[in-house]
Simulated assay, not measured.
Amino acid sequence: MNAKSSVYPAITIASLLGLAMLAIAAMQFSVSVEPPIAPPPTTARVPSTPAAQPTVAANNAPQAKPAASIPGALIMSNQTDVPVRVALLARGKNAVEPAHWDFAPQEGSKEGLVLSLPEGNFKLNKGDILVAFAQDGSGYYWGPYVVGESDAPVWDKKRSQWQLTLK
């Protein structure tokens, strides 16, 4: 009878431990860290296949850096296969509230699209900041670009406008 009485507490303890482990496993805790708002300058997260690496390319039109006082419209071309959001932090003359525009894959890929605000068209100025990032969870991003100081957007002297092409 002594052996029988020592088996029940062992079974009870083992059962309680098993239930506790199942309860902990069912909770499935997870911790996530948000990426920083402004990624490092002119870098892109490299996908697993080198052919799919996003890059920024300039148009074939003649381009030059404009004088600091020349504002111009922004023409955007999304030549990627991912949906993209372009965000603006205007710091130059006549700064507007931060704004963003969303582009479907390949939207505006040939001619580009003139960006505007609900209040109407706007002009980019030297010092304004642009950043673009994929909205499909792939982690691609472009920029940040400081207008008139970084390699993009580029100034099209012929058309007197800025052009940002994402590839």
Rank of each mutant, 00 (worst) to 15 (best):
Q161N: 13
K126N: 11
N2Q: 15
P118R: 02
K157H: 05
S150H: 12
G92L: 04
K123E: 14
F122C: 03
M27G: 10
P50Q: 08
S15D: 00
P118S: 01
K93P: 11
P144F: 06
G139C: 03
V56K: 01
A14D: 04
K123G: 00
G120V: 04
L22W: 08
G127T: 05
K126R: 15
A90G: 10
V131D: 00
S48E: 15
Q106C: 01
T165F: 07
W162I: 00
S15I: 08
L117R: 12
A20N: 08
E111G: 11
A52H: 10
A67M: 09
K158F: 05
G108H: 05
T49I: 15
K158M: 10
V96N: 11
G137I: 00
I13N: 03
L164W: 06
P105D: 02
G18Y: 03
R159M: 12
P9M: 02
V86A: 00
A99L: 07
L115Y: 00
Q161L: 10
Q106P: 01
E149N: 09
P9Y: 01
W162F: 13
L166H: 02
L22H: 03
A3Y: 09
G120K: 06
P144R: 05
F133N: 06
S150N: 08
A134M: 01
A57C: 11
Q163K: 12
P71Y: 04
E107Y: 01
G72R: 04
I11G: 03
Q106I: 04
I24F: 06
V154P: 03
D156K: 09
Y8S: 06
L74C: 07
N125P: 04
V146Y: 04
W162T: 01
D151V: 12
L115Q: 07
S5A: 05
T80M: 04
A134L: 02
A64F: 03
V7M: 08
A14M: 05
V31F: 12
I70M: 10
G108P: 03
S5H: 07
A52V: 03
G137P: 04
Q163S: 13
L22C: 10
Y8C: 14
P98K: 09
F29E: 11
D81L: 13
K167T: 13
A58F: 01
W155H: 01
